[in-house]
Nucleic acid binder design. Structure first.
Lengths: 191, 191
DNA sequence: CCTGCATGCAAGCGTGTACTTGCTATCAGA
DNA sequence: TCTGATAGCAAGTACACGCTTGCATGCAGG
C-alpha cells in the first residue's frame, strides 16, 4: 500500500466516521487527503472501493477477536472485568461512529458480515468461558447464552451511549461502570 | 394535518428508517406517498421540513417518557421487569433504525435533543426508583447512577443488537432475556 | 353554475455528484 | 540522459439531486 493510497483511505474513513458514507463526497476526501480528486479514481476506481479497502485494514477495524479474550484466570470477577475491558479498550467512540457511518444501503451487504463478527467474538468467547467455569464447578448451571447476552449488551450499550451522548447522558466513568457491573453479576451468578 | 401531508410524512419517515436521511430522495418519497413530487414542496417547502414535522408527531416517536415508568409495585424484581418491558415494548426495531436514519449532519442539531430524552427518561426514573427503595429500606446503599446505567445499557444494548442483527446474533428471546437479566440484578442488589 | 383550492403533469433550473480525459510536471531508476 | 510511473491541473461528462413554475384538471361549497 503506497503512501498516497493510504492517505486517501484514511481521509475517507475519517469523514465517513464523522458524517456518514452517503454524505461524504469524493471532493472532500481528496481535499482531506491532500491529493487531486482524479487520483482517487485512478487508484481505486470508485468511492465504494476506497471504503471496502479501508474496512479490510487492521487500522480501521476495532481489533475485537476471540483471541483478545483468552487471557483468563478462571476467577469470575477478574475475568468478567477482563472481558469488558478488552472490548471497551478496542471499541472506541471512533469505531462506534464509523460502524454507524458505514450503514449505507450501498455498502451494507458487504460490510455487515464484518461488523457482526465483533459481537459474535465477545458472545461466543464468554459463553464458552462460562461453560468451562461450570465444568470446573465454580459456578452453577444457568442459561449461559442469556447471561452472555446480558453482559455483552451492558458492555456494548455503555460504549454506544457514551459514543453518542458523552458525559451529557451519564457521568459514570468507564472503570466505575466496569467495577459496578461486574459486582452485580458476581453476586448474581454466585453458587 | 390533511391526508396528503400525512401520507408524505409517513412515506418519508419509513424511507429514512430503511435507508437513512441523505440516501432518501424526494422523488422516492413522492412515489411512496403516491403523490407528485412538487406536492411535497408546496406542502412543506423542503425535504428537511418534512422530517422535522415527522419527528414531532407522536406516531413517529417511541413513546418513552418518565410517565410510562410510574406503575411500580415497590417490589424490586417485578419493577425491574416493568422498566425493561416498558422500554422494549415502545422502542421497537423500527424506532431504533429510524433514530439511526436521522443521524445526518444536516439534521443532528435539531433532532439530537429529542433523541436523548429517551435514555434520560429511563435513567432518571430508575435512579429515582432505586433511591426510594433505599429509603424504604428494601435495598442497601449503592452507586445508583452506575446501577441504573448498567440496567439501561443492558436493555438498550439488547434492543439495538436485535434491531441490527435479529436472530442471527443471538437466539435469546425478549421475555427470556428480561427474566434472566432481572434475576442477575435481583441477587446482585440483595441486602 | 361559478369560484377557489388542491393536486397532477411536464418541463425545467441550478447545483452537486461520481467519474473521465488529455496534457503536463516531477522524479526515481536504469 | 532517457524512460516510466505518479500525480497535478483543468476541463468536462452524464446524471441525480432538491426545488420551481405554468398550466390543466377535478372537485367541494356557496
Amino acid at each position: 500500500m503506497d503512501d498516497t493510497s493510504q492517505k486517501i483511505i484514511d481521509a475517507a474513513m475519517a469523514l465517513i466516521r464523522d458524517k456518514g458514507y452517503v454524505a461524504t463526497t469524493t471532493k472532500e476526501i481528496a481535499r482531506a487527503a491532500g491529493v487531486n480528486e482524479c487520483t482517487l479514481f485512478r487508484k481505486f476506481g470508485s468511492k465504494k472501493e476506497i471504503v471496502l479497502e479501508g474496512v479490510n485494514q487492521a487500522g480501521w477495524r476495532a481489533d475485537v477477536t476471540p483471541e483478545i479474550f483468552q487471557n483468563v484466570k478462571w476467577e469470575l470477577g477478574a475475568d468478567m472485568e477482563m472481558f469488558m475491558r478488552a472490548y471497551m479498550d478496542r471499541m472506541t467512540p471512533d469505531f462506534v461512529n464509523l460502524s454507524i457511518g458505514l450503514r449505507a444501503p450501498q455498502l451494507y451487504e458487504e460490510t455487515a458480515p464484518f461488523i457482526m463478527k465483533v459481537p459474535q467474538a465477545f458472545l461466543s468467547s464468554f459463553t464458552g468461558y462460562l461453560e468451562k467455569m461450570r465444568q470446573m464447578g465454580k459456578i452453577p448451571e444457568a442459561d449461559f447464552d442469556a447471561l452472555a447476552m446480558t453482559l455483552f449488551s451492558a458492555t456494548f450499550g455503555y460504549v454506544f451511549l457514551r459514543a453518542s451522548f458523552g458525559e451529557e447522558l451519564s457521568k459514570v466513568e468507564k472503570e466505575a461502570y466496569i467495577r459496578n457491573t461486574v459486582q452485580v453479576f458476581l453476586k448474581g451468578l454466585a453458587q
